[in-house]
Write a protein that binds this DNA or RNA. Sequence first.
RNA 1: GCGCCCGUAGCUCAGCAGGAUAGAGCAUCGGUUUCCUAAACCGAAGGCCAGAGGUUCGAGUCCUCUCGGGCGUACCA
Length: 676
Amino acid sequence: MKTVIDILEERISAAMAAVTGQSGCAAIIKPATDPKFGDYQANGVMALAKKAKTNPRKLAEEVVKNLDVDDICEPPEIAGPGFINLRLKTDFLADKLLEINSDPENRLGIEKVAQPKNVVVDFSGPNIAKQMHVGHLRSTIIGDCICRTLEFLGHKVIRQNHIGDWGTSLGKVILGLWHMCMASKYGGPPYYKTELSELQACAGDKDRLKELCQRIRDRHEKDWQDDFAAVKGDANELFRPFLEKLVRTPPPDLCEEITTLYQYVNQIETSVAGMGLTVSTRKKDDHVFQYFQIEYEFLSRHITTMLQDIDDPDNKQEKDAWELIKKISLEHCNEIYKILNVALSMKDVRGESEYRDELAGVVEELLKRKIAEESDGAICVFPDGFKNKEGQPLPLIVQKSDGAFLYATTDLAAIRYRVDKLKADTIIYVTDARQKLHFEMVFAAARMAGWVPENIELVHVTFGSVLGENGQPLKTRSGENVKLKELLDEAIERAKTVVEEKNPDLPAERKTEIARAVGIGAVKYADYSNNRTSDYTFSFDKMLAMDGNTAPYMQYAYARIKSIERKAQSRDVDIETELAGVKSLNLTEPAELDLAKYLLRYGEAIEAAAADYRPNYLTSYLYELAQKFSAFYTNCPVLDAGPNKRPTRLLLCDLTAKTIKNGLSKLLGIEVVEQM
RNA sequence: GCGCCCGUAGCUCAGCAGGAUAGAGCAUCGGUUUCCUAAACCGAAGGCCAGAGGUUCGAGUCCUCUCGGGCGUACCA
């Protein structure tokens, strides 16, 4: 079923073409700005008149004369400088609603696209060295919504969770695990926890900090010596056995611990920077270990290089640690995805490490084809049109002067994979706006290399930050990232309080269910309902409010309809039979007509949302629909309506419920509840 | 310095290809419950769309400049 806008666009464009003899006239149909002008308006005639240098009103008259919309609209009216105002016929409305009602596929009148595309969507992409935090929320849920919407429209969507599993942060966690091992031999509360807060506490006090760092370093050195004392080699004494045990039986809080360990190592490295402290480490030379002192702040980077040489059996402990971290972290991510109701699973994971064998080849090919060149020791691509501070060409660095590859390299390898292996027609990247320049350059480089033919579309879908009430990016009081799990738990907890208050008589199990749906729904809906390009202020109170454009309001509207259905059953009204038997509608009340017209516009909202990848077009539509339903609900009794009205009203209720459910649940991944 | 994004009601935000009198929600004030969930509905008030020029029959929307904010700008992701 075509959207009303599309039908009108077609008809009026055709009339415009007939009048002017030009093809490709745009009618520019929009919803009327005021109900008194009708339901839709055509704005295109004025622009056309301007081009043709004729009187717009006269042209509009000509167009209307050539226009055939009798089956859809009342006679069109010309108004103002040349608007064509269109009012839908009630019969047309009724027919369309009946058509939606009888759709066996239950698509609510939404057509699938004629030519489905292969769309790769790169989203979420958490770094597995850390737990997911609030910074991952937007990419994860906006990406999910994009996938769901495109899928609903009939495209083939390939989700790619490009997790961070190959960078320096992994070196930090591996080092962190070593600390965990060392701490275990001391007994008592692990030193890394106390030292982490100590380090944070004396961040401003240089002397104390220096003293503390020296102490940490000395203990580290002693531990290292102990670990290597017995057997010359590779941490055979303590770390290896510890790791093996950890892999066999990981403690339940290991994920939490990994986050702390990461923070600890990170904190040490920023604290000791420039202090000249060194510790022992080893390096492999022809399968023989060499021992040397390394600057403390570079230790984790050194470990990263060993990790990156993972296929060397001598680096088995790094490999084991890495695999363990990855497993634990992904379990955590999956738990979050499940809570968030995000359709992302292990099979969608294809992280940085998957491209590790291709990175050298990427650089090599770029060099061979003179697309990349060496500059200050680094291998760079200089795409046209990018300048640095001095106005010099800005490089996209694909290999650092120390030989390491960067995320630009990985992204290029990933693009090749997505084009060649996944056969993408469109690749969508859902990341925050700060990476705009990076992706512009990566896209440019990929095009230069000929890896992405012109007909393949590369899209960077950006979004703003989540801010706290202070207007700054949302952080905990101590300045850390807010863990997503904790944030979601709090949302559920707060929703629980409200359910408890509003509907204390429900069974406990039901209350828990509702609290989950409402709490998580509120967080997601609040995000979706904002324009994704702007920052937004996170507020539990606002997102959980019953009034306004919130998830609870939407869920409540749905629950009210379901309540009517339950009531109907108790009155022996068989809704299904009654709806299936509806052959004609009786739309008369303003609230009925208003709701009916709006139900037909779902497709417009989806199209707009999909075209610009903007979930807020969906929430706006759904909210307005729920408002129109609420007005209808208060003005038009359903079950007590006479036999000439009840089927019509039941149908309006049913289609509204289906639309809300489709929008919330299918497209936004927000659960609906039967009762609230 | 340069580039990108942003500045709309007291607050949080919409405004989709330039179109008719700029819209919601919160907060404020006032009304509605013998009737399907009042977690609701109806109404009032609230604005020189940051400022100044320009293009146009018409500008929140396009162009130029100014002011104010955010982000980015060679080896982090």
